[in-house]
Every structure is written in C-alpha cells, then in structure tokens.
Amino acid sequence: MNEKEIFDRICSGDEEALDVIYKKYYRMMTKLVISNNGTEQEAKDIYQDALIVFWQKAVSGNLVMTSKMSTYIYSICLNLWRKELDRKGRHTREYKDSPEFQDHESAERIKIINNCVNKLGDTCRKVLTYFYFDGMSMAEIAEKLGFANTNTAKTKKYKCKKKLDEIVKSMYSESDFLD
C-alpha cells in the first residue's frame, strides 16, 4: 500500500489505514518528543494526539496534502509538543488561577457527557461522533452505517442527540451544567 492509497483510505474513514501509519511513523514521531526533554509516555500521547488531528482533518475533507504525510504529522507533533512545553512552563511559573479553574470545571462536564455517550447504543454513538468529531457529511454517514439515505441519517442524528441530552439531564442536575 503506497502513501496515496493510505491517505485515500484515511480520508474515507478507514481506521485500519490509520493503524498502518501509526505503526509506520511511531519511532520517528516519538523520537521528536523524547529528544526534546519528553518522556516515552508523553511522546506517545503527543503522537496519538497529532495523528487524531490528522485523521480529523483528513476524514472531514479539509485536508489537501501538499507534502508527505509524515512531514505533515511531524509538524503537528512539533506544534503540540511546543504547546505542551509552554503549558508545563506556565504551570510551574504560575499558580492555578481562575481561568485554569474554569478549564477544570469544563473538563469535568465534558467527562460526564463522555460517560453518557457511552450509554448510547453503538449506532447512535457512531452517528454522533462521525458527525461532530470526524466531520463526515450525512451522506457519508449514511453510506458508512448502511442507512437508506441522507434523510435517514439526519433523522437518526437528531434522535440520538436528543437521547443524549435526556440522559445527561436525567443523571445530572441542571446546576451541574447550567450554573
């Protein structure tokens, strides 16, 4: 499988193609972080995050490759690691202030919703994640999940989101979210 074939498969949402490049570039990308004061675990996290950003852009159709995939992923890794180093630097220089606290609150709420997403059925979970994270169109979702047409996918998405809304509100008080 050559680079273009892998990229085309990733653009079509083929997760096995993502596995292929993950293995292919693992050492190259983690070396970037490790050789710049990062740990093995940090290197792995950064590489995975970078690959997910790459995946998201490729699947949503917002990526036109003008360089090699490795070059593009490498630049994402570099940016993410710079941000992380900057964040760590700030963390040591400053005490937790208000914005940090607010970030923490927000992260907690997102974690709660994430747990609620797992309570949805598999199809619902896929419809919502494909739409909101992968940026797939309704037509693509319909094709991927075997729905009759785009309208079916759209209706499914509406219902699934409504269901998630209900789960969250039933499990957590309004004050947990709307303070």
Binding site: E15, L18, Q48, I52, W55, S106, R109, I110, K111, I112, I113, N114, C116, V117, N118, R125, L128, T129, Y130, Y132, F133, D134, K161, L164, D165, V168, F177
Partner: peptide, 16 residues
C-alpha cells in the same frame, strides 16, 4: 456546546 465537546471527547478516546 458541552454535549458536542463530550461527543468529540468520546470519539477521541475511542481512537486513542
């Protein structure tokens, strides 16, 4: 907005 962020988080963790 937080619902959508939670959905994104779920997918990200899934891929990770």
């Amino acid at each position: 907005q937080q619902l959508i962020e939670g959905i994104k988080e779920n997918r990200m963790l899934d891929l990770k």
